[in-house]
Design a protein around this nucleic acid. Structure first.
Lengths: 203, 203
DNA sequence: GTCGGCATGTAAGCGGTTACATGATTGG
DNA sequence: CCAATCATGTAACCGCTTACATGCCGAC
């Protein structure tokens, strides 16, 4: 159900095409919810059928069709109701941790690699998040700027605050993962040194 | 694919029934990977067909059938290979954050509630994780203790280290969420005070 | 002219959720 | 005897992934 709200949320800032949405849901908005175009196009139709969005066909150049979707009043109501509801927490599913705890069967070297990949992954993620966060707080983020339009100053401040908090939270998560991996690498190193000392004693 | 490895991982410690697995994958192991019995029973059959697990029928009391699954050598090999491979990171999907950033449309009061639920949720999670973590490091966790059997001291240390790191990592994640929610509540409070000051000035 | 990006769709398959379905055992 | 728990399964449905499929536009 979240895809539906991700789309409505996007359209609640400004109208856009399925293609625009597909771009967003792999990039910017994709931090929070990602989806591919094969999911988006059918969902847009369903939203239109349900009266939560409406579309106007336009053309790019001579022939290329482009359908611009806008949120309806009903759609805005549905989105607002959902946003105001209590969060629902799904069961945890963390393939990396699962893999990690059972890698006591694998050689130490591959555990080290696992942790290094983990650190790299979250380092990249953190950097990208910081980049977007910076653009938002410096008022250079086009889409967020559009969201301020027609809202009173306090609401604008709220919009900014929520995005600031969300991105800072995700940055903090990424930084936690980096620290965790580094700490784990140290512990692993200590164990390795212990193991090789033992091997030396045995020889 | 992770369900398969969660099951193999469980069986790599000691044999067990589908029911046992279903219990584990909602409780202990469920922190890392959760699944329901309707997924587990068919998967166990598939594992047996693939020669990665084998089962023996037993009975509880007079008639109640109970099928005990064990991992095979092939299964252990497949599990070990998977555990030693590089982690694969799936696209982010965070319905709570998505809801949070679009709740600039909802009343402040429901944002406050959202954050309080968030804090409560992760407080409970942290407490349960700490409980299990404590049992593991005090050597009171039955299943982890069984995993040490027949392994040399250094491997035992590795088994303990990985579990210690995994649980401490998850505790740290939960604590981050708690701090985040508390920080967000403070910022929200500041905004609310600003809003009511403005209302007073207007009156 | 051709290549990368714009633009929109469909279909098969897989993994997970919810609900349906059945029956035995144990302890109060 | 009754309820909770043990124990195993099936079926419908939903959301997501991967792959298939088509065609236009703008820049070099």
């Amino acid at each position: 159900m979240a895809l539906r709200y991700a789309i409505l949320g996007y359209l609640s800032t400004a109208p856009g095409s399925g293609y625009d949405l597909a771009q967003q849901l792999q990039g910017g908005l994709g931090w929070f919810w990602s989806a591919s175009h094969s999911q988006i196009y059918p969902e847009l139709k369903r939203l239109e059928d349900a009266g939560l969005a409406e579309s106007e066909p336009t053309t790019v150049g001579e022939k290329l069709e482009k359908r611009i979707y806008s949120i309806t009043d009903d759609g805005r109501r549905v989105l607002t109701d959902w946003a105001g509801g209590a969060p629902v927490y799904r069961p945890n599913r963390d393939p990396e941790r699962l893999q990690f705890i059972f890698s006591d069967l694998a050689p130490l070297e591959s555990i080290r690699q696992h942790l290094e990949v983990h650190r790299e992954h979250f380092t990249k993620r953190r950097d990208q998040l910081l980049e977007t966060h910076g653009r938002i707080v410096r008022h250079e983020h086009e889409r967020v700027e559009r969201r301020y339009e027609g809202r009173d100053p306090l609401q604008q401040e709220l919009t900014l605050l929520l995005r600031d908090l969300a991105y800072r939270g995700d940055v903090a998560r990424a930084e936690l993962e980096i620290r965790w991996a580094e700490d784990a690498l140290e512990h692993l190193g200590a164990l390795e040194r212990k193991a090789s000392a033992k091997r030396r004693r045995a020889a």
